[in-house]
Design a protein around this nucleic acid. Sequence first.
DNA 1: GTGGCAGTTCTTGTATGTAAGCAGCGTCGA
DNA 2: TCGACGCTGCTTACATACAAGAACTGCCAC
Lengths: 236, 236
Amino acid sequence: MGEASNRSNRRVVYETLRRKVLTLELPPGASLSENELAASLGVSRTPVRESLILLGEEGLVRVFPKVGSFVSRVDAERVADAQFLREAVELAAFDDIPEALDPDLVAELRANLEQQREARHDLEKFFELDEAFHHGLLRLSGHGRAWSTVVAAKGHLDRARRLGLQETNGMGRFVDEHHSILDAVVAGDASSARDSLRGHLRAVFDDIEKTRQRSPELFAADDGSVPVRRSIAVWE
Amino acid sequence: MGEASNRSNRRVVYETLRRKVLTLELPPGASLSENELAASLGVSRTPVRESLILLGEEGLVRVFPKVGSFVSRVDAERVADAQFLREAVELAAFDDIPEALDPDLVAELRANLEQQREARHDLEKFFELDEAFHHGLLRLSGHGRAWSTVVAAKGHLDRARRLGLQETNGMGRFVDEHHSILDAVVAGDASSARDSLRGHLRAVFDDIEKTRQRSPELFAADDGSVPVRRSIAVWE
DNA sequence: GTGGCAGTTCTTGTATGTAAGCAGCGTCGA
DNA sequence: TCGACGCTGCTTACATACAAGAACTGCCAC
């Protein structure tokens, strides 16, 4: 029975599309035809359509009724919103750090940092570890479940980070900052931990801003702009 | 014709169901059959199904594959999560209050407080004004757009508040607290504003906790419990 | 050349049909 | 009495058919 299709067909399509959008494999502006996606994924329109609706609610996809669906542009305002939200949540969590930390969780975070060091030149791997690390910080304070809300809101932020980091070489600096944060938390110095975390998040955001100024075309807001249809001749 | 169905059929169904869930018109545990809802709302199953999926993502509806869909229980953990999130966001916003406040917005908030005073015995009206007031506070600091994320996450919190406030008489105390907060903000005393707001939000949360201890059955978590079929499907 | 207008072809929105699973309930057998 | 088992009626998941709209294409009149 295989490992049982615990996950519905829609879940698979949703996660596939979401991953491709966040990794920029599906770049901003890309056309997402329900029919084409259904055909290429080997399912019917229904699960595809439902996934597009969900991604639309997240702001990662823009659906124009009776016209078409597209990967949304990286909207600078949304990026800033997500930055504000994650900073607010992660910093607030540090107000609730318990006296005695969960030793297993601390060990998990230290191991994570080791892996980050090793993967500091592997963008995708580093992102995965970075996500787990920040989630872990929230879990330390007992607010791990709030992470899902942050995740749902920070899609634009993640895409912007990827745009920026593709041009840098090495995430070593971020690993150092992560270390400082965790050390401060373990030492029980919540104030210092807060400062380190804030500095870290702001540094990430500044990188994004620099990228935006270098390549503003990637961040074109999709206010009034409306999709255009183009007939392309292909040799098939 | 009519005033143009600017809003799709799905949007109407979604908003209708969401409102009924949040106002407890559809109580926790209520069965939500796609067929029944489609028939009673005069549409097909498609927009109903899509709405249920969205509400499921919000945590307001629980969908059991091939069994049935139900209004989710008021989960105490989710209530606490939402409380943490909204407090983090609203307090963080007060760190970014600008020197010069938008006078129109301040006037709007003052007018809102007037109406709150008048509506302090009208639960639904008061809730509406309360939402607008807190949203307005965020807008004062330029973070108005973050409100939508908070709204999406605090469905369980809102239901818990309604459960509690149905037993109290008058929301006058909350109006007073709102006044204190706004006054502090206008006076430029961000620190005092933060304290007032935190106190206000905690007071609301304490009310919820008291309700939970009085009527724990309303908050039964829906962990492993599974729906049972009777003559009609109920979720117990 | 240019404006207007119908047709074509794409899109999403909605309705409906089909498949597959779960659980209650009655039947049957021991 | 009690357990096994298929029937029945429900559910959601998925597939497909149909409707309505939007934008491009190209013809046609001028």
